Amino acid sequence: MSLDLNTLDSLLRTFSERPQALNLDSQLAELMRALVSCRFDHLPLPGQGQTLHRWQTLAHVAGCDLALAKLYEGHTDALAILSECDATHLLGEAVWGVWAAEPPDARTRIVACDGDNVRLTGRKAWCSGALQIDRALITAWTDDEQPQLVAITLKQVSQRQQTDHWQAVGMAATASVALAFDQTPGIAVGQPGQYLSRPGFWHGGAGIAACWYGAAEALAHYLRNHCSKPHPDPHAQAHLGAVDAALCGARAALHECAAWIDRQPAADASFVVRRVRAQVEQAAEQVIHHVGRALGATPFCRSSHFARLSADLPVFLRQSHAERDLAALGQQLAQLPAGAWQL
């Protein structure tokens, strides 16, 4: 399916330029439902020849608004997971999310099972967008200590522990809450352990990097427009040069990674995805640095779109695990034959 980005823009433009504070319970959820209703969530699946097109759409939405991109990426990732696990019959018209964080103080357990129908107890933390979506795929634990993917309906959750602990300024609109389960019904999806072992786990991780890139690209356009005016500041031009170098490197890395996945969709993509995430994260941080120094306080104070992206992107980037991810990348690289960097 070819998704018309110009048509998508007609739904996104007013939202991205809104001056008022976001109403958590209306605007964001309503726009997500509009995107689903218009089938703008039907992206090419990863590894089927159009992975780059999928990531381009994610980047486009992220350049509009990262709170929206958080919901949109989670929903489209859920659709890809359900397809990979042969569970598309569960889709319906719902807005989906994917929650798989496993902090030591919050674990969801399967306490009863009747075929694919299960009952859950415990807690699930870091449920971003739980105030705006309908259904979610979560990881829950079986007696043999394997993570099992479970589809839940938010209306059936025992308790939503609300956002009084959520003090974020960046990504404030997608408040992450903790959910409490008490014999809550769910439907098992796929086999125990399949969520992490399937090839699409890493494909989805690269989709997050495409969102980082889209937001960084949108910030960079403010600097490019500034430098296109008569008598540009040479210091701003130098910052623009640095931004171009960073974004072009990240863009090339995303293109290369997408082509690699399309050539071998069933292969372990952990190394190439860790690498591209590191490259895009570093590029985004460079963009934030250079654009801010070049433009000063004005766009932070007078452009709602710029201000939101600038506040949201540093928080969204922390979906990276920083040095832990770099250490894992280095460990994998050390096991490869010499010559991995040859031109």
Rank of each mutant, 00 (worst) to 15 (best):
S2L: 11
L3G: 06
L8C: 04
S16F: 07
N23T: 13
N23M: 05
L24C: 05
A29S: 15
L31Y: 10
C38T: 12
F40G: 05
L43K: 07
Q50P: 00
Q50L: 09
Q50G: 03
W55I: 11
A67V: 00
K70F: 02
K70R: 03
L71M: 10
D77G: 07
E84T: 09
H89N: 13
E93A: 14
A94C: 12
W96F: 08
N117M: 06
V118S: 05
K124D: 00
G129C: 13
G129D: 06
L131F: 07
Q132L: 02
Q132M: 14
A140M: 07
Q146A: 13
I152R: 04
I152F: 08
T153Q: 05
S158G: 05
Q161R: 05
T163Y: 00
T163R: 08
W166F: 15
A168R: 14
A172V: 00
A173S: 12
F181C: 04
P185V: 10
I187E: 06
Q191A: 13
P192M: 04
G193K: 06
R198Y: 11
W202M: 04
I208N: 03
C211Y: 06
G214E: 04
A215R: 08
A215Q: 06
E217S: 11
A220M: 08
L223M: 06
H226Q: 09
H231D: 15
H235M: 01
G241V: 03
A245L: 13
A245H: 11
A246Y: 11
L247V: 10
E256A: 14
A259V: 01
W260T: 14
D262C: 12
P265F: 06
A266W: 02
A269Q: 15
R275Q: 14
R277K: 14
E281T: 09
A283Q: 03
H289K: 10
H290Y: 06
G292A: 10
F300S: 07
S304Q: 15
H305R: 15
A311D: 10
A311V: 03
A311T: 07
L313N: 05
L313P: 08
L313E: 05
P314S: 12
P314T: 09
V315I: 13
L317F: 03
R318P: 02
E323H: 13
E323M: 10
R324W: 08
R324N: 09
Q331K: 08
A338Y: 04
